[in-house]
């Protein structure tokens, strides 16, 4: 299998897993597609009903919109870094090939 085909299959399989989850799963408890981190807090409350978090976040995104802005920013910076490196290496390699020819 060449690299392009296997990369296509890998990407396709990842998308399929996400779509399958969105289409066919129903939440057992709590809100639909809530966070498993929040479910863990619920288990803490169940195990130790008297436990009070002793510290709260210094700053919280004021709304869901701002939160998605920051998550978007995080992935944009990450994709930028990764793809800059890939593009750079591709260019270096192309140049080297050109020089050899």
């Amino acid at each position: 299998m060449n690299a392009k085909t296997s990369n296509g299959l890998l990407l396709g399989a990842t998308v399929a897993l996400v779509v399958f989850a969105l289409a066919f799963s129903r939440p057992v408890t709590g809100e639909a597609f809530g966070s498993s981190d929040v479910q863990a807090v619920a288990v803490v409350e169940e195990l130790r009903p008297d436990y009070q978090p002793w510290f709260s976040p210094l700053w919280e995104p004021p709304s869901g919109e701002i939160e998605s802005l920051l998550f978007g920013l995080q992935s944009a910076v990450g994709a930028g870094l990764l793809c800059y490196a890939l593009g750079y290496w591709r260019g270096v390699r192309k140049n080297r090939k050109g020089a050899d020819a």
Binding site: V18, F20, A21, L22, F24, S25, R26, P27, V28, G30, A32, F33, G34, S35, S36, D37, Q39, F71, G72, Q74, S75, V77, G78, A79, G80, L81, L82, C83, Y84, A85, L86, Y88, W89
Partner: peptide, 26 residues
């Protein structure tokens, strides 16, 4: 550049809240 590429991958993936078959996200 390798450090940047690997950090970038971790930035992207850990920002992706994906739905799972259990009906919750992680």
């Amino acid at each position: 550049l390798f450090l940047g590429a690997c950090a970038g991958f971790a930035f992207v993936l850990s920002a992706m809240k994906l739905p799972s078959v259990t009906g919750s996200c992680s």
